[in-house]
């Protein structure tokens, strides 16, 4: 501090060229104060994300704790019925979990092949101008509110499918699965295209020099080279599908149903949370606590997917 004071003081004497006469020491002091305050405020804003994560974990765990005091974790994980609001209450997460995985699985069946083909097309084939035109359209597709997708699944896709599949239930897992596939498609495309474009051109040139077609270059060089990134896209897409709420709450019904038949309706974990929220269960009741137990399960599953996905993404970024 004394050195700085000397500098200012010396400068204020203004000998020689004396430029620093222009600097007012009290201004410098105020400036330093502002800089310090700004730094603290910015840091606090950035650390907000840590507090939010901590708050989420805290709320989910404390509310679930009360739930698990009544229901054992073993019953929660193995009971095949979910009837918390009945007099003969069962608290088995399996029906909700299986419906969630079924719908997400159908979504992936759409998004994985379509997403990979589109990503290869955009990164290896499409001329730059076309790519610039397509990407915003994909973004708009990703920007459609989920409640609108839900409407679309229930009132457009399901009736359409019923024309070909007379046995299809009004509430079913197929239609929301398909719609969700379209919904996560832009995300899968953008993450996997990112990974493909990170593959260095020198590798592609090597393949072309050997007389490979574009297709074979993509198949033998680009896709293997971008493999971890593409896998990340699938996994992160899966995570989104698992956490998606409105499409399934609207179109898959709200009836817990342990089945492998996608033409039946079944409540997913998210749909169950919505169903309870729409009713009016008293704060603190076991019914109220169930949604936090389900929420915790959902959080853990998506967190796992996200960690694996981000780890894979980081890996390809390190390679190239």
């Amino acid at each position: 501090m004394s050195d700085q004071a000397a500098l200012i003081g010396g400068a204020a004497d203004g000998q020689g060229a004396g430029g620093s006469v222009l600097v007012d020491p009290s201004f410098l002091w105020r400036r330093k104060l502002k800089d310090r305050i700004a730094r603290v405020v910015l840091f606090l804003s950035a650390s907000l994300s840590v507090f939010v994560t901590a708050a989420i974990v805290y709320i989910l765990i404390t509310e679930s704790m009360s739930f698990f005091e009544v229901v054992s974790i073993w019953d929660f994980l193995t009971d095949t019925q979910w009837t918390p609001l009945f007099t003969d209450a069962h608290y088995g997460i399996l029906p909700l979990l299986s419906a969630t995985l079924m719908v997400s699985g159908i979504a992936l069946l759409v998004a994985v092949p379509a997403g990979t083909v589109l990503a290869v097309y955009l990164s290896e084939y499409a001329p730059a101008k076309l790519r610039e035109a397509i990407k915003p359209i994909l973004e708009l597709l990703g920007g459609v509110p989920t409640v609108v997708y839900g409407y679309f699944a229930l009132l457009f896709v399901t009736p359409l499918l019923q024309k070909f599949m007379p046995g299809l239930n009004g509430f079913n897992m197929l239609a929301p699965g398909l719609v969700m596939g379209i919904m996560i498609l832009p995300y899968v495309v953008s993450v996997s295209e990112d990974a493909m474009r990170a593959v260095p051109d020198t590798l592609r040139e090597g393949a072309y020099a050997l007389g490979f077609s574009r297709f074979h270059t993509a198949l033998r060089v680009v896709i293997p080279g971008a493999f971890s990134g593409i896998t990340a896209a699938y996994i992160l897409g899966m995570s989104r599908a698992v956490g998606e709420t409105m499409v399934v709450a609207i179109a898959a019904g709200q009836n817990p149903n342990l089945t492998l038949n996608p033409s039946e309706g079944a409540a997913t974990m998210t749909a169950y949370i919505v169903q309870v929220s729409l009713g009016d269960l008293p704060h603190g009741s076991i019914g109220y606590q169930t949604i936090f137990a389900v929420g915790l399960t959902l959080f853990v599953i998506t967190l796992l997917f996200n960690i694996i996905g981000f780890w894979l993404r980081r890996r390809y970024r390190e390679v190239y």
């Binding site: 994300s49 939010v52 708050a55 989420i56 929220s277």
Partner: peptide, 25 residues
Amino acid sequence: DIIEINVTNLAGVPSIIYGLLALGL
């Protein structure tokens, strides 16, 4: 590093979990 990890993670938390946070907190 911790802040960065949290920002990335929050971007992937399902929106309904935020709803539970808001409900409980």
